[in-house]
Design a binder for these strands. Sequence first.
RNA 1: GCCGAGGUGGCGGAACCGGUAGACGCGUCAGACUUAAAAUCUGAUGGUGGCAACACUGUAAGGGUUCGAGUCCCUUCCUCGGCACCA
Length: 920
Amino acid sequence: MPVYDPQHFEKKWQAAWEKAGLFQGLADAQGDEGVWDILPADKTSSVDARDILYLLFAFAYPSGSGLHVGHVESKTALDILARYYRMNGKRVFFPVGWDAFGLPAENYAIKTGVHPADTTRSAINTFREQIKRIGISYDWQTEIATSHEEYYRWTQWLFLELYKKGLAYQGQAMVNWCPSCQTVLANEQVVDGVCERCGHEVKQKQMKQWFFKITEYKDELIAGLDQVDWPRATKDQQLHWIGKSKGATVDFNVLSEISDNNSNINIRCFTTRIDTIFGVTFLAISPEMFTELGLHNLLQKNKLAEVDAYIEKAYSKTEEQRKIGEKNKTGVDTGLKVINPVSGKKVPVYVADYVLAGYGTGAVMGVPAHDARDLQFARKFSLPVIPVVKRSDADNPNSQENISAHESAERITTEKANGTNNEKASEIANKINVAGRENSDDDNLIHSEHGVLINSGVYDGLTSAEAMQKIPHDFDEIEIATTYKLRDWLISRQRYWGAPIPIVYDPSGKAHPIKDEHLPWVLPTDVDFKPTGESPLKSSQELIERTERLYGKGWRPEFDTMDTFVDSSWYYLRYCDARNREKFASPERLQQWLPVDFYMIGPEHVVLHLLYSRFFTKFLRDQGYLNFDEPFIKMRHQGMILGPDGKKMSKSKGNVINPDEIIAKFGADTLRLYEMFMGPIDADKPWDVRAVAGIYRFLSRVYDLLLTSAKSTSHVNSREKKKQVQQKLHQTIRKVSGDIPALKFNTAIAAMMEFVNLWENSEKFANKSDEKVTAKPGTKTDVRSDQNTDQSLLSQADMIMFIKILAPFAPFLAEELYQQLAVPAANHSEFPGEGEFSSIHLQRWPIWDKRLAELEQLIIPVQVNGKLRDHLLVNRDSINDEETVLEEAKALPKVTKWLVGKQLIKHIYLPGKILNLVVK
RNA sequence: GCCGAGGUGGCGGAACCGGUAGACGCGUCAGACUUAAAAUCUGAUGGUGGCAACACUGUAAGGGUUCGAGUCCCUUCCUCGGCACCA
């Protein structure tokens, strides 16, 4: 009896595949060489775009701790797709690379003095071996690392292309500064006011920084989402990040303090609710905008000190302190007044830091009756609250003018209760009142929905929508406007381990691009890593000397490096021509392989990486380098693998599963299969230590079953059994063939298990058939002996079909079984390109026999009044004979029982599906 | 607060378009083998009642549509992910 011992053969086949170069150089195959010889002539002769498939895995940061089970999951999922599509005759491009620049290696260098290049190199080596060990069929010839000169040379080239078009620019900016990491952080890297990486509180600092003008593409970044097949949630998050909102701007003229006449300064406010303009009782302006407009000069002497102090304080506030302000708003009355151009009313101007400088116009009109934040502010400064929009869905006969916020709120609650016109109305009203009493929070008092205008002069009675159309039309001071949350992308980093920004400054401080012949602008090695608050590159003598040598005395280099998101947002382009020294990729290769057909990526990259990648793609398209709009046609996320305790794996919690240990114990196939079996690919799933053994058991049974039944000499007599097993095989092929493209790996594996269970049981049954066999209930068995010459239940050809569908999931075991069962007999000349090695992974995917896969007899569930009572066995060719089916069903004893004394009103029959008898 | 995903046995999860709820795996229980254990194999396994046949009940809670609802609609609750003073 052979024993399943993955350690014995997995490494052997790994080496054999590598030696044969089974999955290598596919990007180089032009349709007339290499593995493509195994494809039918019509596939290889023409390069049909539909036959090309670019599968992409979000390349990994090679961390020191090695491959994680989460990596295994997404890599295996894509590997299954790659192998499946290859076996189906597609030209699959499945590249690999490393997001090798980044902070961990640098932080490690600060701690230990080991150069990041060394750390990274050894980490990559570890990862590479681990990935090979789990049998991922990457094309290693395309391997890239973002820290390699030949890669970042093109990252720098991309920067310069953007620079030439004015899309890379330098600007003074208040930046998020992490005092611990000693670097600038993008807004995206600040989470809850603290540094995403180290958790330290982030401070504000004014610095000169490089930006990419991603906002240039904001509308296209929205529109492009319609072209791609991505999860809805991802699209929504991108849209939310771009944050387009339509509204209007209103210019409020500032009255001069002395004369009370119009000044020449306007405060422009952005609002999405111009219909509420009659409700404006104050203006709030951000400290930054206050300064920018020079309003300081209009202040009266007695206000100067107070206002300046407030602004000073606001500037120094950290994110954390501003968050506290969310609940307790601050501001200061400037003493200035403005005129509401629509109502003509005079309202005060406040400086308040709840108004964001970076959004809209940096100033807002305060409408406390219809905005929760404005209401909070109005409460604090005892400003009036004027409701100007009432709910339109309930009748309100007693419309009052100038009611207080409290009164209006009360009315809202009663309307709410009256509106829900059922028995529960009083209950609901009660609830609301209780809530109102217990929770005096102002949120309960405002209503921010659209409705019908009141207290709005000639506009009374218009709906919000109508007013939003009409008001801007009637006033020159009001313009329809759109604003976005998306900011330009700050890419400067005061770090060492990244691509140097390819810019030099002349003695006057003017920026100049690095000349093309000086690319790659190499990252120097003679640097001091210790954080000083300045870029580590400043400590490089070599870089400074290089700059002066190449550009002249007094020239100095840019010392900042680029955000690593720049590296990782164009790598999928480089893959297709990874060794090109003339271009970032040749136009032919780009045209042939891109865009990416399927991208598998962690949900953590939903916003930034994808947005940046799309931006680069659109930019390069506009420069004529690409002929497509969107880089990733179809994209799905893998879920997170949680620890056995159901929590996120982390060293500190001690719940980390090490893939190496699983491989050592059970082999790589078990690891792969288990991770695919855990559940839907996009769900978060906890690791179950014991369930892994179940997969190992399954693979052991497959191994035993195939080898023993192939070599079995006992005769099998039951034609019935044979047919059953063969039928199940074809159903399984059908199921697996459908599940793989749908990424339903868990159910594909379950189907294969079902097949193996049936086959195994039948095999046992067959072996025992000499003895007295009692038929199991439910299976309509007939133990009549048939004359049969086959030795086992399944022919060798059938067995190989099963091995083929198993191959993408458990490539090592499949190869081992295939070699043992098929190769001695296989005709090698069938695969001229492959010489001696005929691998299972070069075989064609099996085609299921439609007739065989279909059941001859169907079991129709029979319901009485919707409740299942019995089943009826119907021959496939008579399922449409409704009369007979009905009569036979009525005759079933368990059904008859429920029909006695009742009258059959009607029946619903779905041929082959269900029969429901409705009785009274 | 807003946006999104979700809630099914002891656990991970199945269930195509509204048509047999719980596939498959784990665990548990019982049995076989064994001096014993492990491993392996066989059987049972949502809950309640019943010796049994069988019946009732059951997909977060409540209501609705339908011959029929895990699936569709309404209301409520909970969990997870993201965003958050975005005017």
